[in-house]
């Protein structure tokens, strides 16, 4: 982290460059797998290829929000309260929001193609929309201002509250839906048979999106560290300028 702060040219190190090259290569291979090598679905045709982006996106979002919660808990419980945990929580939160958005968009496009509608009031879809809004709120709270310590503590508590809120919302939305109609999506996938290459492509998608997540989260943490350092330095410079004014 310190080397990243000192380096003026970017947030990359040798290790992250290797990770980046790996990510790009596996993404390229995933695109080939998804668009060229894997077969069309018997019922859905080519639209099934959306799955190779849709499922890994929500997978990354879950990992990211899990990481936000874990880093927030570590921040609050650790004795020295290192801000690096806060920045990792924030970086993961941002990336999680991005990937929930991707999976909502790809999901509704896929839904339009295979069920003929962009949105159904299914419990899983509704909870995912709530997940999206909740973490938008989390990001808004991170930008409230104040000192870095204030931001860290506020957002850490909020991230832990979100962990409590999401199961409650999911549970009550499921109760709500079960009285109105059967879930159409969640139960539909259980008896689906996938051929070997499709399954492999999906699995490979999960791996390459995880690599992408790691790459992004490390760089974002470092750029957040730079932002924090810049704010600190700006404050010091302002105090210095004010002192000189007072002297002269």
């Amino acid at each position: 982290m310190n080397s990243a702060v000192a380096s003026p040219r970017g947030t990359g190190t040798r290790n992250t460059r290797i990770l980046g090259i790996l990510t790009i290569a596996s993404m390229a291979f995933l695109a080939l797998l998804g668009l060229v090598f894997s077969a069309e679905d018997r019922d859905q045709g080519s639209s099934v290829r959306i799955m190779y982006v849709h499922v890994p996106s929500i997978w990354v979002a879950y990992i990211a929000f899990g990481m936000t919660a874990a880093c927030s808990a570590i921040y609050l419980s650790s004795r020295n309260r290192s801000l690096i945990w806060d920045r990792f929580a924030g970086a993961a939160g941002e990336i999680g929001v991005l990937f929930v958005a991707v999976s909502l968009v790809t999901g509704s496009l896929w839904g339009r193609l295979s069920w003929g509608t962009y949105w159904v009031w299914d419990a899983r879809l509704t909870s995912t929309a709530f997940l999206f809004i909740t973490y938008l709120g989390y990001l808004a709270v991170r930008r409230l201002g104040g000192t870095h310590r204030q931001r860290a503590r506020r957002s850490a508590v909020l991230a832990l509250l979100a962990i409590l809120e999401i199961p409650l919302v999911h549970f009550s939305v499921r109760l709500w839906r079960s009285l109105h109609q059967e879930a159409t999506v969640a139960t539909g996938g259980t008896d689906v048979h996938m051929d070997g290459l499709m399954l492999f492509s999906l699995f490979f998608g999960l791996i390459s999106f995880t690599l992408l997540f790691l790459w992004l989260v490390i760089h974002r943490q470092r750029s957040l560290a730079l932002e924090d350092a810049m704010e600190n330095r700006g404050l010091d410079a302002a105090i210095e300028a004010r002192r000189e004014e007072a002297v002269s």
Binding site: F130, I133, T134, L136, G137, A140, V141, E165, V169
Partner: peptide, 11 residues
Amino acid sequence: LLPLLLLPVVA
């Protein structure tokens, strides 16, 4: 900010 934070929680 308050509506954005509060309304999802009270669903």
